[in-house]
Design a protein around this nucleic acid. Structure first.
Lengths: 214, 214
DNA sequence: CATCGTTGTGTACGCTCGTACACATGGGAT
DNA sequence: ATCCCATGTGTACGAGCGTACACAACGATG
């Protein structure tokens, strides 16, 4: 039974693809390299994934534990007493300090999606995931801005080989977050969520909650 | 020494490489495609550029006019009376409105630089170029933050197929810029808010354009 | 038991790629 | 004039690629 039909084959191929991309980038991804990494015959990869895009989408979606996963793992951000900028800057540092394979994978996907429409939904999902996590603490506009800023900071770190400067990240993140009533940057004493900030002339952002299908 | 036949050979190859990358992405760049585009024999491209990385560096450096070029072309940013956030948001819109080849090329470079160390300096240059332009108006920390934020916003626009929201960009850019002596650009809404364009209205934020299916 | 169709495997074809290398060309040095 | 060598060109080779396709294994079905 298990001998013939191997439901783990598919998963193993996907895992191998993630390792291949993590090691050599998307450019190094091919049916053969994945087959070799997964220790399955070439025909097996082409059977389960007719096209490379299909394999890429499956792999990258499974590796969905990017920064959004780090955020979700630390419920700390849900605690309204912690400073959001400080927490985000710390989590960014944590993510960058570990195995950078995940970080590189995420941004490789981001940038590869520029040319491959098939990857766009997956790339968009990640940003939305982070934004959704943040929406518990701020308004949608700020959440989107924070995502954009963090993306830019990550890219700066990855592309310039400069070490991650957590204090700098904390500072600029704090600037984006509209100051609540009272102190600026400190823990928020108010019990209810600081949703809107007055004088905000920006239209409400698109919630974009739909999840694209496979 | 005296050039032999065609001193423009090299330049023509570089131009062809830029067109090739702009059309099909870096993935479509090869000695042969460039040779075909430039209408020169294959050996000519390999002679002038022994390796593909070398050709890429030359091409991308030449195409490095990018956003820094747009900034430089508009001396408007040097005028301290204009609001920096407003000006940047407008220039971003201008860059995105035109031929997007340049924008895509820029971020294509980013992608390639993630995995190819040879391209990293070129990628870093463009960010530094923008930061330097900005340094005439703000401190280095803010300049870096603005670059990061703009990168993130560009990526959001390119990846989600949402139209560029200039009002949103202006708002979040303004938050990053600390309120200075000459200009009031900070998040706090002071009594005199300069350079508020009366004309520009906000486009509807949720077009939810059809997502690219598989 | 015989048959069939789904699932998995091995191999081979045609293509593009980077690279190497022998050859052509013509201006400058002698 | 003769030679030299930087410059330019054509071709060929091996590697890796996506894809196609014939075949093997095995559960379901009659």
């Amino acid at each position: 039974m298990a001998r013939r039909y191997d439901p783990e084959r598919r998963r193993r191929i996907i895992d191998a693809a993630i390792r291949v991309v993590g090691r050599g980038g998307i450019a190094g991804l091919s049916h053969r390299t994945v087959a070799a990494e997964a220790d399955v015959p070439l025909g097996s990869t082409t059977y389960h994934f007719r096209t490379l895009d299909e394999l890429m989408v499956a792999a990258l979606r499974q590796a969905n534990e990017g920064f959004a996963g780090v955020l979700a793992a630390h419920g700390a951000l849900d605690d309204p007493r912690t400073d959001l900028a400080t927490g985000l800057a710390a989590l960014m540092g944590e993510w960058l300090a570990g195995d950078r394979t995940g970080v590189e994978l995420e941004y490789e996907l981001y940038l590869a999606a520029l040319r491959r429409p098939a990857l766009r939904p997956v790339a968009a999902e990640w940003g939305e995931g982070v934004a959704e996590q943040l929406s518990h603490r701020t308004d949608p506009v700020t959440a989107r801005a924070l995502v954009a800023l963090m993306d830019g900071i990550f890219l700066q770190v990855l592309l310039t080989d400069t070490p991650y400067d957590e204090a700098y990240a904390r500072e600029v993140l704090r600037r984006v977050i509209p100051a609540g009533p009272g102190e600026a940057g400190g823990p928020q004493p108010g019990p209810d969520r600081p949703a809107d900030h007055p004088g905000d002339t920006v239209p409400p952002a698109c919630p974009r909650s739909g999840r694209p299908g496979t």
